[in-house]
Nucleic acid binder design. Sequence first.
RNA 1: GGCCCCAUCGUCUAAUGGUUAGGACACCGGGUUUUCAUCCCGGCAACCGGGGUUCGAAUCCCCGUGGGGUCACCA
Length: 475
Amino acid sequence: MKPARTRFAPSPTGYMHVGGVRTALFAWLLARQTGGQFILRLEDTDKAREVVGSGQHIIDSLHWLGLDWDEGVDIGGPYGPYLQSKRLPTYKAWAEKLVAAGRAYADPYTPEEVQAFREQAQAAKQPFLYRNHRPEHPPVWDGSRPLRFKSDPKAYTWHDAVMGELHAGPEAIDDFILMKSDGYPTYNFAHIVDDLLMHCTHIIRAQEFISSVPNYLNLYEALEIERPVLATLPHILGPDGKKKLSKRDGAKDLLDYAHEGFLPEAMINFLASMGWNDGTEQEIFSVAELLQTFSLERVQKAGARFDEQRLIWMNGYHIRELPLDELYTKVGSFWPPEAKNATDEYKKQVLALVQERLKYFAELPALTAFFFADLPLNPKLWQTNKQLKKVEQHELNALLEQAKITLAASDFSNEDLTKRLNNLLEQTSQKPGVLFSLIRIATTQAPASPGLADTLQVLGKDTALRRIDAMLAAL
RNA sequence: GGCCCCAUCGUCUAAUGGUUAGGACACCGGGUUUUCAUCCCGGCAACCGGGGUUCGAAUCCCCGUGGGGUCACCA
């Protein structure tokens, strides 16, 4: 496959949400798997909506995911600048070319007049087409008025790398605005100029642009330029399956997932599996595997719902796959505050025990707090436990006393603990459900914990016996 | 409303004219000497409807229906 030059071109109007970032992922995958380049361009032509800091936020999000770019706003490149607001003379020059060719004209109407046309059309239940009001003798364009494209409406059939053959009639084409009266180009104009000048081979974007493509096709013709490969991705829908995922409807900031302790490789796996698969039954993909097998042709045409449950499962899966040392490094500062003075070695032992039940790092404190500090006695645990609530208090007390003696004799190696615990089971002729639950609750005061012998071993003798005493006093 | 796109279990999806329509998530059972989790086993659960074409249709065609997008000096 020929090297693809793809770009991700968001507008800095807010944080990155998971819907938008999939577009970046697919573009990045295509560039990387073909040995091409990936470009980050910022489309900051809407100064009214621009959110300060969101450009950096987008960069941070991509960094977190591990999507790197060869040219872009922050690092420059041979076809820069990559910030549209710094390219105004370029757009002006191309606009003037269109004016000179008689393919663009100044819009003589006031916004109110255009709005009146629009309402007229709406009242008549017709789509609004500006060109129905195209002025016969437009004023000279001096930049104070919007510049409109003088379209040449016709029917098009074109190929989309994802959607296949697409069609539209002349009614889909209109005299859209190229340059706004504030001197900035519209997206519709700027992206075409930039993609040409930056030699992009593929335009990968979301579905909402599909109805504008005939306009772009018409503009490519007017500009007499070759168009890149077009690839339209289906929407990612919100959990209700209705509308496309949007910030309004609670789409989370991508970095929120970072802060909750999701793994970038899990996020990438999840994002890729929404709307793409390789045709096999494989669910788990590493980035390297995605680079092997990804193709636009196998991207789904229908929208996909964002199912956070699936993301959580996938994240847990990737966590379990990690070697302990690597996981330990990644877990970083997610430990509970009580772990502040714990040694790396101790924390690693704890981590090894909870690795298989950790779905995302933010769960770590709840899962491990009792390893670092005595939790307050929680009578509910033994009062409501399915097995224990059937046993008399004094009997529990006696059992726990025996357990204490047994444990006091142990060297607290895993083998010895297991052996003595089993012996105790026989001596007391108790069900493990009763005896082990009791000891587990006594030594952890937690609703859940890893296996008993493992937990006791890591906790150590002193802590275990101290906690048993505390519970004994409360029984 | 015009135009455009889409349509398989609740969800993500496989199937490219011939399968008991497969897998995964979630959920529900059971097992792995306690809990939670992992792992294993099992269960639940889908081709939007109607017409064609064909020996044969989830797959091709048409018509409905449903959902989505778009019709901005936003991208």
